[in-house]
């Protein structure tokens, strides 16, 4: 048993170290391979120019716009939808139905994204094309609807967890004072779950930013910046997947590392904000207890 003490600790520490080094290596590799892009002049061009390789323009600005518009619209759809579902399950639906809804939504988190993309192409895209009489149907709107479906379950589950964590004493107190259901929701549940609601939003945002398959399959991959929700767009993730040019020294090829770095930094920023929010809220509840 003495031996296992001596062996065990270094072993698990080594595993931790290897995992951490790999995480940092992801970033290091992209910086290394994308290095030629980072002279002041070309970085500026990269982030502001249009994408037109035949005219020598290699800007990823349209793809940044594409990503942000897609993610923005999907959150606009998914946030009210998720909040409504969470309130329904937590407060309003009969118990058995609430359980059924909860289970279904849990199951939805396991649906492969490529399946969403596949059904999107053969079911949603033709529908959108018919409804709006415009374009191919592969557009921001179609992709956002699918993305909203992808991220809603995550959001709902986080919301529900934070609803459930509200101290029963607060709810009992309100009930004892004869509070209505509206008062319970508006004055106890929603304010009490504020941190959870922000957490759910940020997690969903990260998921939407990082998704590749829905954007790649359904958003149409146009290289121009979008002007309406019925326009096709290419996202940063889809750009990485599409530009696997044979010539590894080409400028085209180097831009995918810029996309990778931007995505890495965005998601890192989200992770750090989540950490900060979590840290603040645990500190706060600590102060209240003592």
């Amino acid at each position: 048993m003495k031996r296992s003490v001596r062996v065990g600790r270094p072993l698990v520490l080594a595993a931790t170290a290897v995992g951490s080094l790999l995480t940092l290596a992801i970033f290091a590799f992209m910086m290394m391979l994308g290095r030629p892009l980072f002279s002041d002049h070309s970085l500026n061009l990269l982030l502001t120019q249009a994408w037109a390789p035949d005219r020598g323009l290699y800007g990823i600005f349209p793809f940044i716009c594409g990503t942000l518009s897609l993610v923005g619209l999907s959150l606009l759809i998914a946030f009210p939808l998720s909040l409504g579902n969470a309130i329904l399950i937590h407060l309003l639906a009969p118990r058995r139905l609430a359980r059924f809804l909860h289970q279904t939504i849990k199951l939805m988190t396991g649906v492969p994204t490529v399946v969403y993309g596949f059904v999107g192409i053969f079911f949603l895209v033709p529908l959108i094309r018919e409804w709006f009489f415009r374009g191919s149907g592969m557009c921001i709107l179609s992709a956002s609807l699918l993305l909203a479906m992808l991220i809603s379950p995550t959001m709902i589950l986080v919301f529900l967890e934070s609803f459930a964590a509200i101290p029963t004493a607060h709810i009992r107190a309100l009930e004892a004072l004869g509070g209505t259901r509206r008062q319970k929701l508006v004055h106890v549940i929603l304010p009490g779950a504020k941190t959870g609601i922000i957490t759910g939003l940020l997690l969903a945002l990260g998921r939407a930013l990082g998704d590749t398959m829905i954007a790649l399959m359904v958003a149409g991959n146009a290289t121009a910046a979008p002007e309406s929700v019925l326009d096709s767009v290419r996202t940063l993730t889809a750009h990485i997947a599409l530009v696997m040019a044979a010539d590894f020294d080409s400028m085209e090829f180097k831009t995918i590392f810029a996309c990778g770095i931007i995505l890495y930094l965005w998601t890192a920023l989200l992770t750090l904000s989540l950490r900060y929010i979590h840290y603040n809220s645990t500190k706060l509840s600590h102060d209240q207890t003592f």
């Binding site: 995505l263 998601t267 992770t271 950490r275």
Partner: peptide
Amino acid sequence: LIFDLLAGVPSIVIGLF
């Protein structure tokens, strides 16, 4: 924190790595 960062990295970026 490091592993949270890793969990947040989009899969296409892992593929790129």
